[in-house]
Amino acid sequence: MTHRQIEQLQGFYLTNRQALFTYALSLTKHRESAEDLLQDVLAKLLQQTRLPKELRPYVYRMVRNRAIDEFRRKDVTTTTLFDLERLPEDSPDKDLWPVLEQGLNALEENIREVIVLKNLDGLRFREIADILDKPIGTITTWHRRGLERLNDLLTQESIL
C-alpha cells in the first residue's frame, strides 16, 4: 500500500472509529473483543496492496465477516451499546436506554444490524444493502419493522 493510501485509511479510521466500534460491539457484545476485532481488521487492511473505491462498506463488511468467523461468543459478559455514565445524573432518560438496549437485543440479528448501521452509525440504506449483501427494499423493510418493534416496546413500558 502506498504512503497516500495509508494516510487515507488513517483519516477514514479517525472519522469512523466510533461507528465501527459500535458496530463491532453490537456484533460481539464484548468491549475487548470489539477492540481486538477492529485492530485485526486494521492490520489486515494495512497488509493489502490497494484500497477499494468504496472504503466504508468494504471495511464494515470486513468487520462483520471477522466477527462471524472468530469473535462471536455466546456466554461472555456483555458490554452495553449505550454508556449510561455519559448521561448526567438527573437525566430523565436514564431508564430508557436499558429498555432500548433490551429491545435491540430482542430483535432478529439482521434487523438489529440494520438499526445499528442506520441509526447508530449513520450509514445510508445503499451502503447497508452493500454490507449485508441484500436488496435495498429488504433493508428498508427490516429497518421499518425494527423501529416498529422498538416503538411498541417503549410504548408498552410506558416510556414513550
Binding site: R17, Q18, F21, T22, L25, R31, A34, E35, L38, Q39, T79, T80, L81, F82, D83, L84, R86, L87, D93, L96, W97, L100, I115, N119, L120, G122, R144, L147, E148, L150, N151, L154, L160
Partner: peptide, 20 residues
C-alpha cells in the same frame, strides 16, 4: 416511530478505549 429514531440517533454510545 419518529421518536424512537430520534432517540437512537442521539444515543450515548459506548466509546472505544484509549488503548484502541
Amino acid at each position: 416511530m419518529k421518536k424512537v429514531e430520534k432517540l437512537l440517533n442521539n444515543s450515548p454510545l459506548t466509546r472505544p478505549s484509549q488503548e484502541l
